[in-house]
């Protein structure tokens, strides 16, 4: 297996977006790309990352391999790469290590690191294709700010989607808060658009703690998609055009 990115920045951001939620995980490498799927330790949230082979500068995977890696260790290794350095990952069949090589574009500096692989029992969840009741596309910075703001007031947020707006509400010991975002188009700046596709109105409650973990992916993508159906986990997708995506799934809180 050998995969090369032109710039380390994307991989750095991917790892930063998921490491605090899942810790150790397996990267599944096939000829179509690298992916990981992992639940957090409490089995409330799930992360699914796909990095498509087309998104790499070069990519080769002769035999499918599952590489168990501590994401905190991977973050440490990637700290040694400059944002504009190229990154090459290499793994040979049956080897217990993965190699990272970072090269500056002027080629005057090359650094190499070897990370020990771990044995990780992977439990994959089957996620069915779902027709969601409401899909909200919005700037990822708006979601990050909304979740951070409401976290000051409560632990949970109720997200309610109606035809032309979406409302985020919370309450806690010191008071209550809500943020309402209205649909807005923008032909010259599509990344600032708020688009709501509603088949049925939805109202679901989620732990803000997890949403704040998810919005760590905001630096990867200008936009985010919230896919919701009543009595169903939320899917939060950060698309990376031509590269892949990060999807987070979160189980709702339900009334006792």
């Amino acid at each position: 297996f050998e995969a090369k990115w032109d710039h380390a920045s994307t991989l750095k951001k991917v790892i930063d977006a998921v490491k605090d939620l899942i810790g150790d995980t397996s990267w599944d490498c096939t000829n179509t790309g690298m992916s990981l799927q992992s639940m957090d330790s409490s089995h409330v949230a799930l992360v699914h990352v796909l990095l498509k082979s087309e998104g790499f500068e070069s990519y080769r995977c002769d035999r499918n391999v599952s590489m168990g890696i501590s994401l905190n260790s991977m973050a440490k290794v990637l700290k040694c790469a400059g944002n504009d350095d190229s990154v090459t990952l290499r793994h040979e069949s049956e080897s217990s290590v993965v190699n990272f090589a970072f090269e500056s574009h002027k080629e005057e500096r090359v650094s190499e690191f070897e990370l020990k692989l771990m044995n990780i029992d992977t439990e994959h969840l089957g996620i069915p294709e779902t027709e969601y009741d409401s899909i909200i596309k919005m700037p990822s910075a708006d979601l990050r700010r909304t979740c951070a703001d409401l976290s000051q007031f409560g632990d949970s947020v109720t997200i309610s989607c109606a035809k032309s707006d979406v409302r985020f509400e919370t309450s806690g010991d010191i008071g209550t808060g809500n943020v309402r975002l209205s649909a807005r188009g923008s032909s010259d700046k599509p990344e600032t658009e708020i688009a709501i596709e509603m088949i049925n109105p939805v109202s679901l409650t989620f732990a803000l703690k997890y949403l704040n973990f998810f919005t760590k992916a905001a630096p990867l993508s200008d936009t985010v998609k919230l896919c919701m159906s009543n009595n169903h986990p939320l899917c939060v997708e950060f698309p990376m055009p031509e590269v892949g995506y990060i999807r987070y799934y979160l189980a709702p809180k339900i009334d006792e």
């Binding site: 639940m39 089995h43 409330v44 949230a45 799930l46 439990e123 994959h124 969840l125 089957g126 996620i127 069915p128 949970s156 409650t205 732990a207 169903h232 986990p233 799934y249 979160l250 189980a251 709702p252 809180k253 339900i254 009334d255 006792e256």
Partner: peptide
């Protein structure tokens, strides 16, 4: 107060 549901209530292991 609402209780936190588990993701495995919705998705099954494969």
């Amino acid at each position: 107060t609402p209780i936190q549901n588990d993701l495995t209530e919705y998705f099954s292991m494969v």
